[in-house]
Design a protein around this nucleic acid. Sequence first.
DNA 1: CGAACTATTGATGCGTTTCAAGACGCGTGG
DNA 2: CCACGCGTCTTGAAACGCATCAATAGTTCG
Lengths: 244, 244
Amino acid sequence: MAGSCFAEVLSEHITLTEHEREALARLEERNRTVKRGSVLRRSHDTGNELFVLRKGMMMTYVILDDGARQILRFHFPGDMLGLSAILYEEAPETICALSECVVCPFEKSGLSELVETHPRLAAMILVYGQIERVALTDRLAALGRTSAKARVGSLLLELRNRQRTDDSGTGNGFMLGLTQEEIGDATGLTAVHVNRMLRQLEEEGMIGRDGTKVAIRDEAGLMAATNYVDRYQGLDLSWLPKGR
Amino acid sequence: MAGSCFAEVLSEHITLTEHEREALARLEERNRTVKRGSVLRRSHDTGNELFVLRKGMMMTYVILDDGARQILRFHFPGDMLGLSAILYEEAPETICALSECVVCPFEKSGLSELVETHPRLAAMILVYGQIERVALTDRLAALGRTSAKARVGSLLLELRNRQRTDDSGTGNGFMLGLTQEEIGDATGLTAVHVNRMLRQLEEEGMIGRDGTKVAIRDEAGLMAATNYVDRYQGLDLSWLPKGR
DNA sequence: CGAACTATTGATGCGTTTCAAGACGCGTGG
DNA sequence: CCACGCGTCTTGAAACGCATCAATAGTTCG
């Protein structure tokens, strides 16, 4: 319960100082549990809080005028949520829990203090913002220029990688925890067509399915067919300032 | 020639201190001119430099395996370019000039120093990254869930706003400086269909066209039809740390 | 055990792509 | 100065991918 989730994620890339660990732990002092389906922040709310996701899976989406939903991003433990909302008077996106989740809320002022006293942590938040930005451009390219099958396939790869469920080899698969409608709202398709694409991927031997579990059967083939790149890999952070 | 372009953009939101202005000016000491069509950084290059765009219009795009191009973002004077490339060993995107441009290249270490000595500027870079991120999610929602006509319309609104050409009232229009193929590669459409959508928008009285010039004739109507929001407006930056 | 959500499958329709051909503009070299 | 070539714009006809509509079966949860 003591350690910071965000710190754990950062530790995969840099060695944190004791001071930095303490500062991050302060952001996660408070805990809040949210149930599947409940909304952490609704679009057009005035969002004053930030969150670190400690446990579970969440998503952010927007609802357009005609009622259509576009899921923008999925979130996993260690992610910082709601950064975009503190820029604006009104939050641009809705944040919603896809499973039983635990989040740690903190104030805008907490971020401000962190930036002032720990430049390297400020740089790391900047870096994670850029990683998300690049991941978004990947999905933009997928929606703009790839087929329905490729979009569904790349989403499966992304979810598997971000969940850190190691199903390589054994092929026993992972729980994706999404309905086909949610996959559709993330990939710009209808639930019906998502269903057909999943069946096709299965018939081609790319994936296996068993109830709500999915297994990547031909990872190399799927990656080639979908242009998927794991943007959390291959980072070069040698230019960061020194830690305090 | 003295002032920093980036500083000018930031000044619209916060009052910079003398120290901050100097630090920003140092980033823009060197100038480089690039011709229309030439590439500033190619995807998979090792990108060590960052840039501030001083003059002209640029774009970033990716080319997929099948040769299709997706334009991710358009850039205007005062934008910081190439942030995403310094995270990775290989640049994820190609940056290319759409007109005669002037850019100011600087090293990764320059960013690092800036973050260390000027926390508020670090926060502002973070903020601008988030603005871009939100603008990308708007385009993601457009590609995933809106019609071809709406995508083209919202792109026209975005280009008009970011160019800061004030064609309101007079209706004499602005140069958009893009071919229909480029509009298509940004909106996930073919050049042929972009042409048809432009004609339809014209027939409906939403826009006017004269050669390569475009005028927004019914701004309210277009905005309603396209879900467009200017993400550079309505910022609340009261939580920022104090300047040094 | 029933209600509500989720998955599955088929038939039909629409929006966008693809293919094709011609017109217009623009810079270049003869 | 004109002729040529190339890129861009424009328009039509046909094909295709995905959406829509509809109906049934399966699953989850109170």
